[in-house]
Design a protein around this nucleic acid. Structure first.
Length: 268
DNA sequence: GGAGATGTTTCAAG
DNA sequence: GCTTGAAACATCTC
């Protein structure tokens, strides 16, 4: 499910637990979720520590605890963060991490195990500090994008937009939304864009990220019907701008939706 | 029963 | 060495 705006929404689900200590920790022990680390550290280090802050970066979430402990969560495709106001809670089938506080529980849930939990003691770890510039940061410049497109001149735009090292937080539906607004066919190659098209791509990438945060992050509401988002999954879906039929096909390894009336097929 | 799902990583081919 | 594409991961829903 989650792309940048949804990730922001989920990270706030634990806000009610800010400033309060963890009393105990439940681990399901699914190794895949904690790949690359040893989850047994988590109960040892977090018990008695307060949750003191949270932040997101693209699709990554980071929760800070007292004592310099950091918990990183990636939701993968089906992960979710939840909080329940309760004193007792039996972990559900796909709950992988449950942090018990005095009056609530903070839960990470993920049926498909594509999500990931990382843990680090002693300051922010490299996997957090070395993240690339966010799309809405000042470092995400037009010229950096142009340079990137030139380097990946053979790859389809759809595949490039899913590159988390360059477009952190952009996922499948956001990539389609960006290309639709920029009037660029998803199969256009990185090297085929002229100056004007490259500028449109840059502008719409930022615009979609900005609007997604504004509309989705507060309550996980769906975007308005003027977006491609609302029409892209429906068979027989119609482009809200041209009124003509939408097309779906796999590009860059993912289901891709576009409006042929608006996004002309590349030549050749 | 089969296909596909708003994601990332890894591996191999070009 | 770099770029690109496909498969693998595991479960649920339509």
């Amino acid at each position: 499910m989650p792309e940048l705006a949804e990730v922001e929404y989920f990270s706030h689900q634990w806000d009610s637990g800010l400033g309060k200590p963890i009393r105990s920790v439940f681990l399901r022990g699914e190794k895949r979720i904690f790949r690359g680390g040893d989850p047994r550290e988590i109960p040892i280090e977090l018990t008695g520590r307060k949750l003191i802050g949270s932040t997101t970066h693209g699709k990554q979430m980071m929760f800070r605890f007292g004592g310099g402990h950091h918990l990183g969560i990636h939701l993968g495709m089906t992960g979710a963060i939840r909080a329940f106001e309760t004193r007792t809670y039996d972990p559900a089938k796909h709950d992988h991490l449950v942090l018990y506080q005095a009056k609530r529980v903070l839960v990470f849930h993920d049926p498909r195990l594509f999500g990931r939990v990382r843990f680090s003691s002693g300051g922010p770890p490299n996997w957090w500090t070395d993240l690339p510039p966010e799309v809405l940061s000042a470092a995400f410049t037009q010229s950096a994008l142009t340079e990137y497109l030139a380097r990946h001149r053979g790859a389809p735009l759809k595949a490039l937009l899913l590159d988390q090292d360059r477009f952190p937080g952009v996922g499948n539906w956001m990539a389609d939304e960006i290309l639709w607004r920029a009037e660029l066919h998803p199969r256009r190659s990185g090297g085929s864009l002229n100056r004007e098209e490259s500028k449109r791509l840059w502008r719409e990438t930022r615009q979609v990220c900005r609007m997604a945060r504004k509309t989705i992050s507060p309550n996980l509401d769906d975007p308005p019907s003027s977006w491609l988002f609302q029409h892209r999954w429906k068979d027989g879906g119609v482009c809200p701008r041209t009124g003509t039929g939408l097309v779906r096909e796999t590009i860059g390894g993912r289901t891709t939706c576009w409006s042929p009336g608006r996004q002309p097929e590349p030549r050749g």
